[in-house]
Design a protein around this nucleic acid. Structure first.
Lengths: 241, 241
DNA sequence: TTCTATTAACGAACAGCGTTCGTGTCAAGC
DNA sequence: GCTTGACACGAACGCTGTTCGTTAATAGAA
């Protein structure tokens, strides 16, 4: 079976009459399955980051050569789609509660964020993904349902889902980049907050009055304070006045 | 002079007593300068996209080999910083007007967006950039000034600048990816809006009630409607009630 | 003017990347 | 028992960013 056909088959709604994972024995002690590839890939990403996920590295983790992967996956891009699909599939979504839609939106976005951050850098793949994957649509549907239940107009709700997901992915991507740098960067190029604050304060106050004056605010934010702030921003902007 | 020293020198505030671009002749008819490298790189990106900007391609455009570039640039990452710096330098920022802060924010963000989109894919480099570049700080300062003039509290203003810039970069990155796909993708994998609408509508209504019902809204949006919407969202969330 | 130290430019190479081709090897169906 | 088809895989291709060692040309000193 052509891997392109595999991909096409995957995009169909799940067909219950398909035979379940046949476990025939091949030359290997156990044949490689797509699920196994996804699991291994996520393992590599979790421990070494998305940048480290190469076809060769993944093949090595499966004790085989890179060519073997192409029997299960069309592309690296296709693999990316599979990974994001898996991540989305693991998310469980609340049943929309009209009275608590703001809390629910915040909750789901936080869950997506943490899911992304478990696999550093993977949000880059999320940005580039086709909006046709079933699991992705499921998450979209979940968020959309919450907003609609909250009384948001359909058009606003649809675009807001888009904006929220885009922001979450971008936030995680940026954070992963920063973390990766601070992890395995030999020399400078990476700055902790104190250093950054000092730099801002040391700028010429004539040309950068606000930056020097509010250096503290610019560098403030423990944990996900910035994330929470932006979510509040969008939710507030969305809520009918 | 070591290219790392070059980089360090670049990060200093501009020193007016530095001698201006000496145009000594080397073996080449004209020596390569950093500005020339940046110009050529931007040219490559503008016509072929950021993905096509490799050190070899860039060197080729300068009629030399890839090794020659490393006399002017530490890294590809360093080159990225230079490119974003140049883009920021070309932005002109309005003088903050307390009465029109919302318009001004929208205006500057739109300018940044268009600047990014002129060089497709470059926003990826923007996401990864160190917040120490002078031109980047200049843009930050400009946005911060507008928000402060508008009466936004310093902490909210500082974080809002962050959120806005992050969203703009992510929006442009996503758009560039989609455009690149629709440009040089042989077969499917790219979907126009009609196709997308049809797919949404064709989903099982039992499991995706909102998606099928509001497929039109989900796929709506000419030009930068989504961009404008999200900016409004954030600005509305920011404005004191 | 002549000599030397510095510096940019460059050719060649390295390790690694995604991907493809051809081949080998196994299990199932007639 | 033989054919068929799917899977695994070694080897290779054309890329990538980056480094090394060398060459050529200039700037400043003598």
């Amino acid at each position: 079976m052509n891997p392109r056909e595999r991909r096409a088959a995957r995009q169909q709604p799940p067909n219950p009459e398909a035979e379940p994972a046949d476990t025939r024995r091949r030359r290997r002690t156990a044949p490689i399955t797509v699920e196994q590839v996804i699991d291994t890939a996520l393992g590599v990403i979790a421990t070494e980051g998305y940048e480290a996920l190469t076809m060769r590295r993944l093949a090595g983790a499966l004790d085989t050569g890179p060519a073997s992967l192409y029997a299960h996956v069309v592309n690296k891009a296709d693999l990316d789609d599979l990974l994001i699909g898996r991540l989305c599939a693991e998310l469980d979504l609340p049943r929309p509660d009209p009275a608590a839609w703001q809390e629910q939106i915040r909750d789901v976005c936080t869950r997506i964020r943490d899911q992304y951050l478990k696999y550093p850098g993977i949000s880059r793949a999320a940005l580039a993904m086709a909006p046709t994957d079933l699991e992705t649509i499921r998450v979209n549907e979940g968020l959309l349902g919450i907003l609609l239940a909250g009384g948001i107009a359909p058009q606003a709700a649809a675009w807001a889902v888009d904006a929220l997901l885009l922001y979450v992915a971008a936030y995680c991507l940026e954070l992963s980049i920063v973390r990766e740098r601070s992890a395995h960067e030999d020399d400078a190029w990476v700055l902790d907050r104190d250093e950054l604050l000092r730099r801002f304060a040391a700028l010429p106050a004539a040309t950068f009055p606000h930056t020097t004056r509010h250096a503290a605010e610019l560098t403030a934010g423990e944990g996900h304070d910035r994330f929470d702030f932006t979510l509040t921003l969008m939710i507030n902007g969305l809520a009918p006045r």
